[in-house]
């Protein structure tokens, strides 16, 4: 049995009109790249910020919760426009890639080459695997509900395992001054940060860490729930901002 697929009613542009259309695409690509590096990076730096800047902030309790929760915002908003209006299935990947470019440039030139923080101390985390899955789920399901529940959850749950190969080595224990700490903690104590007294470092507060090996999965599943809700909220924020209204006065 064959499936009857209706032919598209529009005619593709040819000749000069096709070139005009293509040239406009390229202009938009350049515009979008810098837009999302600039805007998503500022949003991310001022909400996740310290957990992403410093290796000793990358704990089991807050880092896997805060990063995906704040990181799913722009991807959801951009997907709402790129998928709904243009059928382009790469909104999340575009945002996260732009963010990674911005963070890497800043970590190398602003932290390492200016103020001599070791690059291992300021490595950015990645959300790229989660973003790819988020885009694929939206493309295959074409459903906000399915993407919010399964894509949002996957975005959060994939965060810690996809970063473990990068940061695991800094979490090995060392004995220092008759106390036990991690290599990441040692970075934090040895490289003076005048703007960050120890009481500001928000890691593993409360009693979640007494749950032992369950601290990370608990944080990740908490983040999965919140990401599903955050995804939906930001989908609608993206749609609202993509208004095409003209006003008579402001």
């Amino acid at each position: 049995m064959s499936v009857n697929i209706s032919k598209p009613s529009f005619q593709p542009y040819t000749g000069e009109k096709a070139r005009i259309s293509r040239a406009f695409d390229y202009l938009i690509l350049v515009l979008a790249l810098f837009l999302f590096i600039g805007s998503f990076h500022l949003h991310f730096a001022l909400t996740v910020g310290d957990w992403d800047f410093w290796v000793d902030w990358k704990d089991r309790q807050w880092w896997p919760l805060v990063t995906p929760l704040m990181g799913i915002t722009f991807p959801a908003a951009v997907q709402a426009v790129l998928w709904e209006k243009f059928r382009l299935p790469f909104g999340a990947t575009l945002c996260v890639t732009a963010l990674l470019i911005g963070t890497w440039v800043a970590r190398i030139f602003a932290y390492h080459l200016w103020n001599y923080f070791p690059i291992n101390m300021v490595l950015p985390a990645t959300m790229l695997p989660g973003a790819l899955v988020l885009d694929v789920i939206l493309m295959l399901s074409n459903s906000l509900t399915v993407t919010a529940i399964f894509g949002g959850a996957a975005f959060a749950l994939l965060f810690y395992p996809s970063n473990w190969p990068i940061f695991g080595m800094f979490h090995v224990p060392v004995e220092y001054g008759n106390g036990q700490l991690t290599v990441a903690d040692l970075f934090g104590f040895e490289y003076i940060r005048t703007g960050m007294p120890e009481y500001l470092r928000i890691i593993e507060r409360g009693t979640l860490r007494t749950y032992g090996q369950y601290a990370t999965p608990l944080s990740a599943f908490c983040s999965a729930l919140l990401c599903s809700l955050m995804y939906t909220l930001w989908w609608y924020i993206g749609k609202w901002f993509a208004t095409v209204r003209y006003l008579n006065k402001i």
Partner: peptide, 9 residues
Amino acid sequence: SYFAEQDNS
């Protein structure tokens, strides 16, 4: 992006 994060550094 660039100069904003550099503020923290």
